[in-house]
């Protein structure tokens, strides 16, 4: 199967530290793939470089075969690649609904001129955005909190809201940065459910996660990074038994 995302020799150095070191990675379409690794393995850096929030030191990123290495973050998003953040980045002063509505930015067109004059098509578009955003909130189960200020939601709900916001952009590929961090057991279970349902929407999911149970339960493929390099890759069962992985994790202890 064609990889939806591919990195070739991707590197990112911070001073002398090689957060990513000549990384080759392939994500196949329609999969749920997890990226794990000990602390400092370069997982979050990988997401940051792919979405070009920070530029890589070297190497290329290909999305559906197209080089996106030097494209701006919003252009990459427009091509169908979006993400969430390990440290939540909600628009905390806006309402829950408005957050999701921003998620629909790419799928609407109203500009300065047309919005200021409130042209009829903008009016219709606005209604469509609102209705569909409500549906996304229903999809993730936040429909009872529509008009709350996002920053006032409990932490678990904030994580889910960030997910809903990303979904509203209808990406082809969604990168989740530690979706279960800070969640309790029940919330984590809900998250597992949610992630499986996202896959059913034909969205490829890549996630970085520390919670091994979640990773093993939800992923079809697991990639293990250590010190910016890929040390193992395979289905969850194989990874569980892989010696290099055990060594990397035990070495960390």
């Amino acid at each position: 199967m064609n990889p939806v995302l591919k990195t070739e020799g991707l590197s990112k150095h911070f001073g002398g530290v090689k957060a990513l070191d000549q990384l080759d990675l392939e994500i196949s379409k329609g999969a749920i793939q997890s990226i794990i690794g000990p602390n400092g393995a370069g997982k979050t850096t990988l997401f940051n470089v792919i979405s070009n929030v920070i530029p890589p030191t070297g190497g290329e990123v290909l999305f559906n075969g197209v080089k996106i290495t030097r494209k701006q973050t919003h252009t990459i998003a427009a091509m169908g690649l979006t993400r969430t953040f390990q440290n939540l980045r909600l628009f905390s002063e806006m309402t829950v609904l408005e957050n999701v509505m921003v998620g629909m930015h790419l799928r609407s067109k109203g500009g300065f001129f047309s919005s200021a004059l409130k042209l009829p098509w903008v009016f219709r578009e606005e209604r469509r955005i609102r209705e569909e955003s409500r549906e996304w909130l229903r999809f993730v189960g936040l429909h009872d909190h529509t008009d709350r200020i996002a920053g006032s939601l409990p932490f678990g709900n904030q994580r889910i809201l960030e997910l809903a916001r990303a979904l509203a952009s209808k990406p082809q590929l969604l990168m989740l940065d530690e979706p279960a961090a800070g969640l309790n057991m029940r919330e984590t279970q809900d998250m597992v459910q949610l992630i499986s349902r996202i896959r059913d929407l034909d969205i490829t999911v890549v996630l970085v996660e520390h919670d091994m149970d979640l990773v093993m339960e939800v992923s079809e493929r697991v990639t293990v990074l250590d010190q910016g390099r890929k040390i193992a890759e395979g289905d969850p069962e194989a990874i569980r038994k892989d010696e290099a992985v055990l060594k990397a994790y035990l070495g960390e202890e």
Binding site: S51, V53, H74, R89, F91, G103, L106, S169
Partner: peptide, 9 residues
């Protein structure tokens, strides 16, 4: 950052 990953230029 969040705005730009949602496609806001």
């Amino acid at each position: 950052v969040a705005a730009s990953v949602l496609g806001v230029n």
